[in-house]
Design a protein around this nucleic acid. Structure first.
Lengths: 340, 340
DNA sequence: CCATGAAGCCAAAGCGCTTTGGAAGACTCT
DNA sequence: AGAGTCTTCCAAAGCGCTTTGGCTTCATGG
């Protein structure tokens, strides 16, 4: 059942039927009702390919997926996707993942924009002065950055959590508890979030005249193994920290293992706070010692990004509005006063 | 730059240019060269929307993503996606995720097929007599099932690992080591993979005249917490098992925690084998006691599924070929002889 | 009573590609 | 030389929708 048939069946022109269905004003309400009725009864659904060719709109949002043999997709992605998908579903949006060589995403961005394959895109894991942000910005397609980039002479729309604030609060708490040697086991510090977190920790320490030692900050891909290695290295040193802030639950698993391997205890010898993106399959309260966290649901962020993308597509949202979500500091058993 | 312009510029018809570019035989090789040359020089790329409208082919593969507030996407998904994306990239395929109400995926399948939004789909986490398999099969779109369904009177193409064989081997090893009371901490037993794994364990036990006690098999969503609870319940019982087979590394984290909480040790009191889908961020060899596993890279499976989908789209693969991959049994420190 | 404008509808021209149904010319064969 | 056969190209008809630019009809106001 296509438009032509439907129009014929109603003894109307395609024009009128199309307009009736799309809510244009120049059609009699009575007629519109007839049309919508018939459309529903016959299960008419406009062919998206045709519509897309005519309008240039695809009803899809895009994501350029960096791939490659040595490229691992962040497990956070799936949670973000849950939220995004949940919103997208209720608004008839599909999501298209365009795999790209991790080292040349530009080509792919240009392609999907030039081909009008998607109506909007989002960018994740941005770095300072991220070339994707600049690119997409000049390409003129609606977009939102999940996270933040920095160092541009222009504004852009983003959704980020207050990473600096979160880690500032976490570090401040630890300092208040008497800790003097803090360490930060961070994610890849080429990404903005990691930079912000480090900044937060430093600021909190500075407020008490402390500093974050060069060897007390690690920046690594967030795997369990890296968490272990980093913690082990930190704790075996002569100036071992008495408290650790850690950028992910997965790394925290490794930290806990290292602490145990060294015959130390949490929070007796080391206090630990980690960032929790709220996975359904790994919960900080279930760590052997319940883990204190800075918590922010990445899933909700996904839903919000989808919502804002939809708003931008339909013109409801404009301009370069940045949105920063506060982060909860959740205290559990893994922090205590500094050992004597 | 569109076809019309390119044709005009070459003083050829659109027909000829189109044919030259698409490798049809009825065009002079000399002409073809000229055309391809000009196309490349001017960066001509056929508009996919137009092509799709004309041909009905989209160059995309589809996945119906179950969503909902209470629906969690399996973290395995992201690894599978890595593989899929990696292959897709090298073959200019995009992936479209169509979010659907988890309880009504049929509507979405029908839509994407009717609209010819994708050239092929894959189905994951199938259950016995999975309605999606039956549906997609009648809809007549190329597809592959990742995993297996059962109980149909027709064949269908799938890619699965030998879950039964893997757990059979694992259980057999444990029995050989003298264990008499095994337990299985399984995934959701509405899914085929879990059924197969249980079958494998039972078969191995039966071969030695043993059985899997009713209370010795747990079937739960694969979270750390569920692993903990299950293990705790098992090990606190009077007929506690001396060996546990576990369906996921994430659950195994919980198992390990439970064992420790109970003051027991691995492998002294309990031997443990888990299935490893090979995550980059959590490795069995890094468990406090290196974990024995049944190992199969879900990422490779993703790449293979993409490869086969591409083959089916282009007609290179036909029929209902099922493909079952063997699973490695990797012995590490977490298994030992049964306690006296 | 005619000009004016709004309301409601339509025919047709795109959107940019593929594909059908020739047609012209070159070549082979008898 | 004439008939048949390739080879190589083209004009035009889709694919199914949106949108432009009218064209009626009818009510309104001077």
């Amino acid at each position: 059942m296509n438009l032509k048939q439907l129009a014929h069946m109603l003894a109307l022109s395609q024009t009128t039927v199309s307009r009736a269905l799309n809510g244009y004003p120049e059609v009699n309400e009575e007629t519109r009702r007839r049309v919508m009725d018939a459309a529903k009864r016959h299960g008419y659904r406009p062919n998206p390919s045709a519509r897309r060719l005519a309008t240039g709109k695809s009803g899809m949002i895009g994501y350029v997926l960096p791939t490659g043999n040595a490229v691992d997709i962040d497990p956070h992605f799936v949670e973000f996707l849950s939220g995004l998908g949940d919103y997208a579903r209720s608004h008839d949006l599909d999501l298209v993942l365009s795999p790209a060589d991790a080292d040349d995403q530009e080509t792919t961005y240009r392609r999907i924009v030039a081909n009008r394959q998607v109506d909007a895109v989002y960018i994740s894991s941005p770095r300072p002065a991220d070339s994707r942000v600049a690119l997409v910005s000049t390409l003129g397609i609606p977009f939102i950055v999940h996270g933040r980039s920095e160092g541009f002479d222009f504004e852009y729309p983003y959704l980020d959590i207050d990473n600096e604030g979160a880690f500032h609060e976490a570090a401040r708490l630890l300092v208040q508890l008497g800790h003097r040697r803090l360490a930060l086991i961070n994610g890849d510090d080429r990404e903005t979030f990691a930079i912000h977190r480090e900044r937060g920790v430093r600021r909190a320490l500075a407020a008490s005249g402390l500093t974050l030692g060069e060897r007390h900050v690690c920046s690594l891909v967030m795997t369990e193994e890296n968490g272990y290695r980093a913690a082990r290295r930190l704790l075996e040193a002569s100036d071992a920290p008495t408290a650790i802030a850690c950028s992910s639950l997965i790394m925290a698993l490794g930290v806990v293992r290292a602490v145990r391997d060294l015959g130390l205890s949490i929070p007796g010898d080391v206090s630990l706070i980690a960032h929790d993106d709220v996975f359904p399959w790994l919960k900080p309260e279930n760590f052997s010692v319940p883990l204190s966290t800075t918590r922010s649901s990445i899933r909700l962020a996904g839903a919000r990004v989808a919502e804002r993308l939809a708003a931008r597509i339909s013109g409801l949202e404009e301009g370069a509005r940045g949105e920063v979500w506060p982060v909860d500091l959740v205290i559990r058993g893994s922090v205590a006063g500094a050992p004597a």
